[in-house]
Nucleic acid binder design. Structure first.
Lengths: 200, 200, 200, 200
DNA sequence: TATGAATGAGGGTTCATTCAT
DNA sequence: CATGAATGAACCCTCATTCAT
């Protein structure tokens, strides 16, 4: 609780934020630890008190930022009191797309790191995430929709892969169409994926 | 044509193949030019007679290897004498998935380089590809299906993104399901995407 | 005397013992102060309350451990009530060899630190030793044998150098012979050294 | 033979000599590779073309310098046409002591590196020495005296250990006596060691 | 063309030491 | 007395690139 403890958190946060800025601006390969500490205003040795190397800080950033993204979408979903499964899925997807449209830097950061395999990270490796709140929220969501969906994990995998990979270029470069032009087709396809997995 | 000319080609090929092996084994970041020339059996200076740096050799590899993949699928498609558009699309997708299932190293190499944005590379940047045969084949294919498809580029974009991102984990890790378990769902979804874009 | 005083001694001892273990295991060059304090379970700053640096703790260890070795040999010698000079010398040498044969780690530690020049340390530098009991015991011993030996310091120098340097490899590696095979030759040579210095 | 090859040797020699000077002046622990290359007038990277690290250059120096010492003593011995074994041994010992008395820096360098165990290095590890001429010369010498000596290796071990450890302090500090005062006693002792091993 | 020795800037990492708590 | 976060100098080592041969 003391002043020291607070100071530590400030240093850590400062390093995280600075690293995020530099990684998204110059790329992780062109960012040196010297760059990070200089911009963060701490000594070089201090970096190593908090992180193993720049890949460590990078993965911690990734977990933290993308967890927030998904968690806040789920929170809002609950606040809305939505009950229908299809509506739930669309709400979450839509919320995340909106957030990423507003925060293109975050979109680039997440895309570069996850590459193909967006969902692997989101759905499987709780060991990697290490963030209990997020992991449990994801699990809960999948169990929740499991009542009406035959294979909820596979369905979410397909939806997330399709969405994650197709919105990137649309949001950032309006290519091959703008995100607003893409959405109708995307949602129609998602809808048909849900159909496939809905028990009749 | 002469012996010298041949020797040059041998050196170039040797560097390309060696670089591919090292990049896929150790990753491009952990591969130095010293590593490449040593394994290829040429002198350090020789490298610079053929390539600008290791990113240059990497992008040339990417273009070459993935062009072959797509071109050979199209060739086989023509050989089969398929006329139906839907069948054409399925044939090409299936052929590429088969090839990548058999050559996982190539799958990893392509995935790591393209990340999200598989289709951007395949459909758009002729400047990047610089390979006429491949670029024209792609163009031709898109024009070909344009007769029955309302927005062929967007449709191919969605199909390729969905396919490219979802098969990676399935082929390499059998996660969340094996490629054989994924295929029925993938093809059903592709089918519904084609439906969306088919003029009635 | 109080509890605080005791606690201080515990910390100091803990640091000394930990340092000994690490120095003999990893070598002094590969042992950092961070290593020592971590293993000893004290804070970094605490180290500097007791020692100047790792070379300080090393030399204090050396003095302490080798003093004990020699002092206990002399004590046992007195207990035995030996009177003959030649017997005294052999008893002390034998006792130390036995002790070092049983404690090879200590042998390595002393050897590494003293290198050539075993006797310089034992016979001369009272400034380095700073340990009165040990210094006086040595002095007393030399004076004691001075009655029958012409140049007791030089004689002890030669005996100690010969012994100290030849037993190391024999005890640790059985090279070029085992310590038991070496002993007869060693003692015969020591005997002839004593002869040289014995007044007739 | 070319100019390049010569230049390489010059660089290597320069690094070796510079390192020797610095190691003997400042000690190996206080000498950085930056110090060495700066004094040698080459770039940092050049160091690594010839040596693995500073311990590598150190051990190469040790082998080279001490080989020369022993080899030149043997050469002179042969030139003298000495036939008596006892005389041979005394000649070699005397020659080396003379050389080390004249080159105290070399004496310190060798002493610091070999510590106890001078003879282990000289008599046993041909793998460490890697210098054929020296190794074979040593072997030859030992075989040579084997005709009249029962266990020539053990005898040489004892002589070398006694000599190596006792002359150090005498030459460098005149302690406990000067080298000239030590010699008579040393030789008398060596003589009695030879006696022990001489077959009657 | 081909070579490979030489370069030296640059990056990652360690660690003794300090000092506010 | 004791702590341990913070420091930043120092060091090791790599490696893309050049250029005389």
């Amino acid at each position: 609780m003391g002043k020291a403890e607070t100071n530590k958190q400030i240093k850590r946060e400062s390093l995280l934020n600075t690293a995020f800025d530099l990684f998204t601006t110059k790329g992780i390969n062109n960012t040196s630890i010297a760059d990070i500490v200089e911009a963060a205003g701490v000594a070089k040795g201090t970096f190593y008190l908090y992180f193993k190397d720049k890949y460590d800080i990078n993965s911690k950033l990734l977990v933290h930022r993308s967890s927030l993204l998904f968690a806040s979408a789920l929170t809002r979903m609950h606040e809305m009191g939505i009950t229908d499964v299809r509506e739930k899925i669309f709400f979450v997807i839509d919320d995340i797309i909106d957030a990423l449209t507003k925060d293109k830097v975050l979109l680039m950061f997440i895309s570069k790191n996850l590459g193909l395999g967006f969902s692997r990270y989101m759905m499987e490796s709780p060991a990697v995430t290490e963030e209990e709140p997020f992991a449990s929220a994801t699990k809960e969501f999948i169990e929740d929709i499991g009542n009406t969906i035959s294979d909820p994990r596979l369905m979410m995998y397909m939806i997330i892969e399709l969405t994650g990979s197709s919105i990137y270029s649309a949001i950032l470069y309006d290519k091959p169409v703008t995100i607003d032009e893409l959405k109708p087709h995307l949602y129609k396809t998602i809808s048909s994926i849900i159909d496939q997995f809905t028990e009749r």
